[in-house]
Simulated assay, not measured.
Amino acid sequence: MTTALLLSGGMDSTCIAYWKRPSLAITINYGQKAAAGEMRASTAICEALDIQHVVVEANISALGSGDMVGRAPSVSAPATEWWPYRNQFLITTAAMKCHAAGVSELMFGSLKSDGFHADGAPPFFMAINHLLELQEGTVAVTTPAIHLDAHELVQVSRTPIEILAWSHSCHVDDIACGFCRGCRKHFETMSIAFGHSY
């Protein structure tokens, strides 16, 4: 086993799962409001693609802020769904699982448009990779879609609509609310990628 993907069950990580076919997919229940929907989506995607799937339980909801935990956003938040140090936590937690499973590459589904979050931009991933290199183990973090927008990723990965239909992008519930930033991005991406409204 050499590659793993941090799979949230959202559109971006679903496309990377289809495109890159990792040996292992890791989904983390960190206390986010949409956890049940993300677990359901991730499980279905892995079954459809025959990818080994593990769920890690690591509830940090007491430390969260914003839509994903159901609290007012932090004063530092660049967007309503921002959760302080979330990507750092998710990568660290997933890297622990990768180390135990003998995985050397952990893929993370950050896109070009995620760069407005400091922890979604290339400098962050370079820094966290360096941090992992300073420690025991050989886990490297890669971002195969960081040069793409969401609709470009759908097209480049050639993910079929029957796989994307399993994805869950809502930030606030385990059933898509249709109004949060995650749901709006989902509908907009599907419309651009497939040429009609959803």
Rank of each mutant, 00 (worst) to 15 (best):
V156K: 13
F179D: 11
W82L: 13
P22Q: 00
S13E: 06
A48C: 09
G64D: 14
F187D: 13
F89K: 03
L131D: 02
H196Y: 04
A127Y: 02
M11V: 15
V69Q: 15
I26V: 12
T3F: 10
E136D: 05
A100E: 14
P73G: 13
G64W: 12
R71L: 15
G137M: 03
T80I: 14
P78R: 01
L134Y: 00
R21E: 09
A72I: 11
R21G: 08
V55H: 07
T27A: 06
A79W: 07
D173M: 03
H168F: 11
R181H: 04
G64P: 07
P144E: 01
A62N: 13
Y30G: 05
P22G: 07
S74C: 08
V139N: 06
A127I: 03
L90Y: 03
H168G: 08
T189F: 11
D50S: 14
S157K: 04
I192C: 00
I16V: 15
G10R: 07
S23H: 13
C46W: 09
T3G: 11
W166H: 15
S74P: 01
S197P: 00
P122E: 06
R181D: 10
G9S: 11
A79Y: 08
P78M: 04
I175P: 00
R40G: 08
H53D: 11
Y18E: 06
G115E: 05
Q88I: 12
C46K: 09
K33Q: 06
A176I: 03
E57M: 12
A193T: 03
L6K: 01
P122Q: 04
G37R: 05
I45A: 14
L106W: 02
M11Y: 09
M1T: 13
D173E: 02
M1S: 14
A44R: 12
A25G: 10
A127T: 09
S13G: 08
L111S: 04
L7K: 03
A41N: 05
T43W: 09
E188K: 02
H196G: 02
A101P: 00
A121T: 09
K33T: 01
Y198H: 10
A77R: 08
G137H: 01
P160K: 06
V154P: 02
I45W: 10
C98S: 07
M96H: 08
L7S: 07
L6A: 13
M126T: 04
W19H: 07
D67M: 13
E81M: 12
E57A: 14
T143I: 08
H130C: 05
I163R: 08
I91C: 07
H151L: 02
M1V: 14
E162C: 10
Q32A: 14
N87Y: 13
L49H: 06
D149L: 11
T143V: 14
A79P: 00
A58H: 05
E38W: 04
L164T: 03
H53I: 14
I28H: 00
H171G: 06
G102C: 04
F89Y: 05
E133C: 11
T43E: 15
P122F: 10
Q88G: 15
H186N: 07
T93G: 07
A62C: 12
A145V: 11
M11W: 05
A62Q: 14
I128N: 03
M107E: 05
H196W: 02
